[in-house]
Design a protein around this nucleic acid. Structure first.
Lengths: 205, 205, 205, 205
DNA sequence: AATGAATGAGTATTCATTCAT
DNA sequence: CATGAATGAATACTCATTCAT
């Protein structure tokens, strides 16, 4: 009996398609990715793809939405729910997050955001609201908690959570461009964390 | 028939074209820039443009080559020739360089490199050899000099000149994406420098 | 499980669909009308529509068939059954028919026939046989009756019932294209009738 | 020596293309005509066609503009410049014009206008201003001249030049739809002219 | 009978690149 | 050298039609 030409799987389709798109975008970049190709990878006709995503741009946005946001969610959830000290969190889950990000699929999405962002202002806004702003906010909150609990002293760093995000972005970009010549990004991220934590604790760094 | 008042010099043509291209790429990005448009901006016919640059990709590479490298040259030249202490250099010319970069045209080129780089491995190699590697090397050298002269202590940071480059890349990317919500990048760069210098000097940060 | 309050009758379906199609075609024209849209207007699934009409073209033909023919029927029935004199008929029911046609839905169908006709020769044949030929025949017959009864004289006009149809077609087309600049079509149709009747009666027009 | 792949004929291209388009539109109608096909007929690449006409719609408009307007010009020029009496003009040049139109290419354009007009309001306006309004105006003027010179009496017909245009439009439409069953359109047009002229002259028609 | 998810052929339009002049 | 007319491959998107459910 031959494979049925049709499978009715309304529920699964969107995710099947965004997954295929993620891979395709990751390999070729946005502009060079053919809608045809995404459909083929998803094992779906082009027409069906357009049933779920009005345009290629739409598809791109959906990819960003569905793969990046959950990562941030995971991080903020831990901050909110755990009993860890700030340092424990930074050296534990945060370091783990920062360390693994540059090698993951998400890393490629971040490069895509940098590349394509300026052409999609609404996506940029979405990304700011749901990813960047929340991520920075979570760090700020964490530092504040550290200060409240006498773990950290207050300093200019409290206003600059970006200092914690910096090595992550740097590693993402660096590894995606100069894979070969890239330093051990773990070391880089670790070094920055050491610097910052020593500073916050008032130690000689 | 009157002699044309200005006759364009053959020798200037390539630069006129790369300048036009820089502006165009900066405005629209690589893919969305039309060769036609670059030619028009340069006041040159499309055919002539193709006489100097075999392909659009070629033109892109030429743009990167001619505008980014000189900036790095300027910086390394100062390091090599000046009598400043390491800290003076970092707080002086380096800070100035880092502070102005994110708002300049070069900033856009860096974003373009991030976006288009992976499609042009040879360009990436060129960029590594002539910009990144030399930039990081210059910082390493500077730190080493600081150590030699008793200004700095030796630490893990000596092996990670990236820590000095990080805030620059971060600011470039951040400002080009989130102009509105962007923090004062001067402050960010300054804070990182403070952290690093305090650490190198062994101060309580 | 409650019985649905209204259960659509199978027998009514085709007409409900052609009615929806008429409206849709009238609004958008044949090519721009989506089968999807017709189905939605008819409150029916696309699949069911295709159960009744094999193709979109089929649907179009059905629309023409079901809405135009009855109009002609109505007219010929009056001719055949009434006791009116020819002039009474022309100035009465015929004028009424001619006057109201250009503003009705049928008018749009006629425009569609003009537009799409050449692509559907069989439809054209059907239209000729059932509408045009019968309409012209009815007029011829009427004129003949007028001659037989001494009401009209015989002239070249007897062979050209088209002269009576002309202002109707003209008004239909004119109003559908130049609604704004259109003359009072009643006056136009009336004037042509006056001309023709005066001629047939041998009056000075 | 092989045919050169390029011919530089900037001046001739637009007309070569509109001519090809006229034929194609005439054969297939607007929607069914492929831009590809027009280009092929014109012996030109698709790209070049788009150099001269921004869109398919643009091309269509150009076709209407370039082939219909001159015909009207020819007619009005005769009215304005000739010394003929009104009747001479009507039975001479006007009849000739009306007689030949339904078999000409223009006839097909008129059908296209009827079919596509409502989708292109600006084209419709152009057509009204440059063709219909001027054509009707010319007839009105002619009738008025006839009245002034004692050739015609004044009547309701003076206000309805449409009565003269009617048989032309009717013949155009009729012949393009029912070529086979079409009456001798010359006879039809002649009969209407006879009716109208007799009426204007006050004769028993 | 009824649904609507799934198909895929079909087409307008763009743009880097070439080459006759 | 210089031009810009000419090329044609490449691609997002549509929609009539089908068919598993």
């Amino acid at each position: 009996m031959p494979e049925p030409r049709f499978r009715r799987r309304k529920e699964d389709r969107p995710q099947e398609i965004t997954e295929a798109a993620l891979t395709a975008f990751a390999e070729k970049g946005y502009a060079a990715t053919r809608v045809d190709d995404v459909a083929k990878r998803a094992g779906v006709s082009k027409g069906l793809l357009y049933l779920y995503f009005k345009t290629k741009e739409d598809l791109f946005k959906a990819v960003i939405r569905s793969f990046v946001v959950p990562r941030i969610d995971a991080l903020t959830t831990i901050i909110d729910n755990s009993e860890m000290s700030a340092e424990e969190f930074l050296r534990g889950p945060f370091f783990e997050f920062a360390r693994t990000l540059p090698g993951s699929h998400i890393s490629i999405l971040i490069r895509l955001m940098i590349a394509e962002g300026p052409k999609h202002p609404d996506l940029l806004q979405f990304y700011w609201d749901n990813v960047v702003s929340r991520g920075l906010g979570a760090i700020s909150e964490l530092l504040e908690r550290g200060v409240q609990q006498g773990e950290f002293r207050r300093s200019a760093v409290n206003e600059l959570p970006h200092l914690f995000a910096m090595p992550v972005l740097f590693s993402v970009v660096f590894r995606s461009l100069f894979e070969k010549q890239c330093p051990d990004t773990d070391k880089l991220i670790g070094a920055q964390l050491d610097l910052l934590i020593a500073h916050m604790k008032g130690d000689v760094a």
